[in-house]
Simulated scan of single mutants.
Amino acid sequence: MGVQEGDRLWSAWWYDGEWHDWFQVRDTVFPPKAPIATLSRNDDHMEVFGVGADGRLWGAWWDGEWRGPFTVGTHVLPKNTPVAALSRSEDYMEIFAVGEDERPRGAWWADGVWSDWYDLGTRRFPKHTPLAALSRNEDHMEVFAVDGNGRLATTWWYEGTWHDWSDLPPALVSVPDGEIVFGSRREFTLGRPVQQISTGGMMEPLVCTEARVVCGSDGGWEFTAHLDNHETECDVSFELELNLTGTSRPFTFVLRGDLSAAGDGYATRVGSRIQGVPPSRTFRESGAFELLRDPAFWREVFKAGATFTLTRPAWKFWPEGGDVEEPEEAVASGAGADRP
């Protein structure tokens, strides 16, 4: 879909292996070259959105034929503002845009009705900042944007709550070779919490809220992280990995540990809590990697980006009055420094 010079919205469609020619979508009118957002929430439904010349968010939908146009909310957006749209289920849609006041906003559709616009966190972005949005499942949404300083930031929604914006670590750190001192240290920190949902019990998460890896050109390293097990019926064993990006050889730091079930239920009376294992703890490991002593590789590490990943948690379920189930290894859900 796109807007021609004459301000009309046009579309072309593909069906059964063949593209069909362009046609005009109803009476939708947008400024020339206005950014357009689209989504499909099931096999028989499409939606299109864009900011009109009046600054209102306009949309149209198809369910066998094109209908509309209609407006969303009362807020006025700058002309040619990019819009992001997603659908996390057949019965739900959400749109996002940055306003004249540099506030990111969202509006949602459910039960046949559009909400008005709401503020999305406390961060500010320049007008016309493009937003990217996605949904991994019905209980999760995430929005990304680059701020005026070139930093990539994200905010995410999980089980009814939006979390405020946080910066994501850069893919690569631009550092001139002359500023890399052999004998210095390099520190990597977690940009935002990462988590994995339990595979049994109450389906509560294991969450890493803080993590830091400090390594030196003398070969030494220290990995520190704080994790909380929110699951009340399962103990958990985990691995937290830091993977470096931009190095000529794969390089990974791994922190391993165990946490007991949370709360004060049956699992805490018969599980690993009775052996002194808490449900919340700061873990610390240190060691040495000979490869860090190589000046050429150290320059790569100093410039590298990093991603923290919570992988392969094994949950030990303690059903009250039942047999103990063997730990189940979860499939990694793509968690990283950029995901909850």
Rank of each mutant, 00 (worst) to 15 (best):
D264C: 09
I180F: 15
L120P: 14
P340I: 01
E325L: 02
L242H: 05
R269E: 14
E179K: 15
A107K: 11
V175T: 12
A296H: 12
T311H: 06
T245R: 15
E94R: 12
D7S: 13
P250T: 01
H128R: 02
M203Y: 09
T307Q: 09
W13C: 07
A110W: 13
R185M: 08
R186I: 01
E159D: 14
E241P: 10
C234W: 04
W14M: 12
P176W: 03
S280I: 13
Y266V: 04
E300N: 03
W221Y: 11
I95Y: 14
G178K: 11
R299M: 10
G263C: 12
D338P: 05
V76D: 10
V98M: 04
L259Y: 12
A304T: 09
G55V: 02
M141T: 04
R8I: 02
W14E: 10
R56C: 02
E285D: 14
H45L: 05
S248D: 03
T209E: 13
W114I: 04
E102S: 05
G263M: 07
V324Q: 15
G112K: 08
A37H: 02
E300F: 01
R41C: 07
M1S: 12
R256G: 07
G17M: 01
T309A: 15
S174W: 15
E94I: 14
E94Q: 11
V3Q: 00
P169I: 10
C215F: 10
G178W: 11
S198N: 13
P126W: 07
G121F: 03
F23H: 10
W13P: 04
R293A: 05
V214C: 13
T268C: 04
A171H: 13
L57R: 00
L131R: 00
A330Y: 02
E142H: 10
Q195N: 14
K79M: 09
W315A: 01
P250R: 06
V173C: 08
Q196V: 09
L134W: 01
A288W: 14
T252G: 06
G322E: 05
G99W: 08
A330F: 04
S237K: 08
L227F: 03
L310I: 01
P32E: 00
W66G: 08
F30R: 00
V213K: 06
W22Y: 10
D54V: 01
I197K: 14
A335Q: 11
E142N: 13
M203L: 08
A211L: 03
N229Y: 07
A132F: 07
R192Q: 14
S135A: 15
W114F: 01
L292V: 02
V277I: 10
P278S: 10
G271Q: 15
E241H: 07
P32F: 05
V143C: 03
M46A: 01
R103I: 07
V213C: 08
V324T: 08
R124S: 09
L152Q: 06
A262P: 15
A211W: 07
I95S: 01
V214Y: 12
L259M: 13
A84E: 08
P193S: 09
F223E: 02
L227G: 04
V324D: 00
